[in-house]
Design a protein around this nucleic acid. Sequence first.
DNA 1: GACATATCTAAAGCC
DNA 2: TAGATATGTC
Length: 744
Amino acid sequence: MIDYLSKLNKQQYEAATTIEGPLLILAGAGSGKTGTMTHRIAYMVKDCNISPYSILAVTFTNKAAKEMRERVENLVGNIQGMWIQTFHSCCLRILRMDGDRLGYGNNFVVYDPVDQKSIVKNLCKERNLDEKRFAPAYVLSEISKAKEAEISPEAYARRKGGLEQFQVIYQLYDAYEKQLKKNNAMDFDDLILNTVRLFEMDEEVLLKYQNRFKYIMVDEYQDTNMLQYKLIKMLGEAHGNVCVVGDDDQSIYQWRGADIRNILEFEKDFKGAKVVKLEENYRSTGNIIAAAHSVISRNTQRKDKKLWTRAEDGEKIEYYRAESDYDEARYVADKIKELMRKNESLKYSDFAILYRTNVQSRRFEECFGKKGMPYQVLSGLRFFDRKEIKDLMCYMRLVDNPKDDVSLLRVINEPKRGVGAKTVESIQAVAKTTEMSMLEAMTLPEVMDGLSAKASQAVGEFAALINSLAIEKDNMSVADVYDTLLVRSGYVKALEEQDTVENESRIENLLEFKSVIEEKAKDAENAGEVLTLASFMESLALVADVDNHNPDEEAVVLMTMHSAKGLEFPVVFMPGMETGIFPSYRSIDREDGIEEERRLCYVGMTRAKQRLFMTSAETRMLYGKTDFTTESQFLKEIDRKYMTGNAVYEKKNQGMSQARYSPVTTYSKGTYVSPIAQLEAVRKAAAPPKETLAKSDVQPGDLVEHVKFGKGTVIELKGNIVTVMFEEFGVKKMARDMAPLKKL
DNA sequence: GACATATCTAAAGCC
DNA sequence: TAGATATGTC
């Protein structure tokens, strides 16, 4: 009678039709998790007469939220009033509506990690702190950890005791919080933390949301942290209709603060919880599932469950021990060609190479490039983290809010316009005494008079550009503001002047960004609105995924196992199965570290639908040094029955490489010298003397030779830069800084 | 202030 | 090795 549910298996059906009370859905890899969740929502609306308005579904990524929204819409049609959101966007919405009680203006801005870093950097500079001991990344991770545990700066100071190190961090944490408050800004952690605070402080607000969201669903529950757990707990307490979906075996983000106890102890936290296990896998062959199980079952901290499949056993997993990292890449490339020859239905995009660290992509890129095989690398760097995008966003943010000193600092000398540290300091000093924003302060005579002609002109033009746009912004489209900034800031011109491949791609990215603006403008138009600069900035605050994996592109996919979570490919390669790489050397001395690596291995293996290949290399170049390697323990953990290949790992492996993973700490004259620095020093002493080439010695077209890079051709001379293209790099790369060059 | 050179360091990345 | 950042030089 309910035909849209007829495609579900028994467990899926049970999960989708259990609506009242706490429910834990343990959804194994490839078990039809998203389908079950969307059908559950459809069932609520269509068969239980639950208003979409009462439903809250929370995910971690925009992509997941978008996919869920689309699939639910397909099933039930209009879902107006339903919240399908990421944790952060959900909290942002709540805080915009009801956050005034916390003392923030409701137009607060959201600072991303780049902003956070620049604030901490400035705080360190003001205090003249050692930038090694108090690296921004370290300070921020302490701050973030504290916030996730709801530890205030004062509590942090008390808890960490009197150690000077932590006293300083306390001071920074405290100053950081004050600055954010002063700037009317929140960071990502604050979005969750402040929502929890709001609920704790104002019962009325909490009640409002408890009454509204009578049915709550949480995706990827194994990835929640303490604060997110608390948020859900508070919202769900009144009615207990909390359904969480996840897989403890796929918890691979503990290093990012995820607390696996949330899923392991759900039944304790939510009394009377029902548990449904989705254990039938619809993705992979029998051998792949069995092999993956033989690995993951070694973990001690996990819920008891076992994936199974009706599919055939399929081919065994193939293992190849390559001679070197070069040979490893060659093997993979040849294998892909061979498989495509044998099976005409296979396309390049059916193959994925899933590695542990991003640097591993390099060998594959070189090899694929040489063989003319198409590939796409999904790197860790997100579109909106790219420098040029971030720069332009800061320009726009500054126009939108001229008081935003954080953004101003970022772009005041970007592109280089002759406004250096000295000038910036003098502006900051005046801004502080007059309590003005830097933009206001920079045109005052007391600043201008102290500047050189060049600097004062640059400062004047910069201020005029921002101020005029700030006045005109409401009469202009966002795209026009953007174009004006691109041109009048001189940003594009600066990129064009230095004609390198990198800059070309920067310009491409800036164009891509414009199409993002135009897209948003169109969306707004369709909704009968006009896109304002403010709403555009707002919509970007929590968005990051413009360059996600594009399955339609005819290319082999290269990415980390982390980013492959949730995806699937007919053929998967897992290279670098070596101790130190996978499992990572940073994790091998802790059992919980190894367990997380093992889960990652499980995630990688279960991405494969038909074929799975694992490889390792006897020698690998790492950090500029070639070393012998030891095979990963995970290879040994796979039951022999499911695997073939030239495995040599049963032989005793002489642990030649062990030394490099347990670096010796050496102290000389009280200063620490890292082992890598020591090696570098030795190598440098042994290096041949440099032959320096003056710019006047060559002209474009000349053949030159570099000690390390080999032969190349001079492309151009500009300023003091000699740009040489080296044969070995092909057309793709150019190099600068060519001091040790010999003319041929 | 801008560019050149030296030095250091190296995991994964959601919002 | 290669990128990011600190330091040095013009």
